[in-house]
Structures are given as C-alpha cells and as structure tokens.
C-alpha cells in the first residue's frame, strides 16, 4: 500500500514518472550476470581476441566430440560446407553456406556452447573458436586475429541472401 501511495504521489509530481513504480534498478551484479548479447555491428563484443591456431586446439578439446574433428557434424550440427546448395533440392545450411553474420556465431557459441556446459568459455576462447570455424569454411585466412574490431567486418558468403517477409504471398 505504501508503494501504491508513493506511485500516486509521483504521478501528481511528474507526468514522466512511471505509473506503477514497481521493481528497482538492476544491480551491477545483475547486469554482469546478464552477460552480453551481440549485435551484428559488434555492439556487446567484449575485450579479448583469438587466433585460428588457438581455435584449432580449443575445437579439438571442446567441440569436435559433437561437431566432428573438422566440423563435418555428428551429434552436433555440421559447421562447414554447403556452398552453392541453397537453391538445390538438398540445401545444406551451415555457418559457411547460410549464416549471414559472423557476430551471430560469436553470440551463439558464447551463450549456448558447449552444449552440455554453456557459459564455460572465456571471451578469448570464444573468439578463437569462431576464428577456427570461419577458417574451416575458408571465410578468413589463417593469420587473421578475431576480436571486437575485426569480427563485425567479416563478410559472410550468404550475407546478402536474406529478404524481408513479403507475406501474404500465396493466393
């Protein structure tokens, strides 16, 4: 009741004030716990960096048991190949052939991988894993260091393959 009364008082003080006055500002700890969602322009990418070489080692240790030693897929999704198949009767949608943004790979590895222990990897390990998978697909050279600056500039092969929803499209 006290909160309601305070809310009512606020409403008379300022039209800009919240009407219900529920909750409280998030604590710094809560904001840290949220982690970081990554936008395609790189917003949210943390400090750190990774090389293809470091990613190769990390992949063998953490990723290969599900995705195969060369990302060819097993229990986990296939990560390589499929270029030129999207317009065929058997499209193969992989990071290389389909995903429009390299930042999405960082975001997804960071939030959801490894499957049984998501959240395990440090930012530099995520950068390294991303560098290796991009290199496996021939998208970046062996010597490119992936970090918050270089990752958003990686052009994915299917970057321009996505269109807005035109529906209703069937009559």
């Amino acid at each position: 009741m006290v909160v309601v009364a305070v809310a009512a008082a606020f409403a008379t003080l300022s039209a800009q004030a919240p009407r219900h006055s529920v909750g409280r500002p998030p604590t710094p700890e809560e904001m840290r716990d949220l982690g970081s969602a990554i936008a395609p322009d790189g917003t949210g990418l943390p400090d750190g960096s990774g090389t293809v070489g470091a990613g190769r080692e990390l992949f063998a240790a953490q990723c290969a048991r599900c995705h195969g030693p060369d990302g060819e897929g097993d229990v986990g999704a296939r990560l390589v190949g499929g270029e030129g198949t999207l317009a065929t009767p058997r499209p193969l949608k992989t990071v290389g052939s389909f995903w429009p943004y390299a930042t999405t790979l960082w975001d997804y590895v960071n939030r959801a991988m490894p499957f049984d222990r998501p959240g395990l990897l440090e930012p530099s390990e995520v950068y390294a894993a991303v560098a290796y998978v991009l290199n496996l697909n021939g998208i970046i050279d062996e010597d490119l260091v992936i970090d918050a600056k270089s990752l958003p500039n990686v052009k994915m092969p299917n970057r321009d393959g996505f269109l807005a929803d035109p529906r209703p499209d069937v009559r």
Partner: peptide, 18 residues
C-alpha cells in the same frame, strides 16, 4: 540476428534466398 532467427526459423525459398 540471433542464431534462432537467422539460421533457424527463417524460410529458405527455392531460389536460394531466405
């Protein structure tokens, strides 16, 4: 451009666009 709105839950057309 989350994984579950680009690589999944997006609609691949016959011409290869999505």
């Amino acid at each position: 451009m989350a994984r579950d709105e680009t690589s999944k839950y997006s609609d691949l057309m016959a011409d290869g666009t999505t």
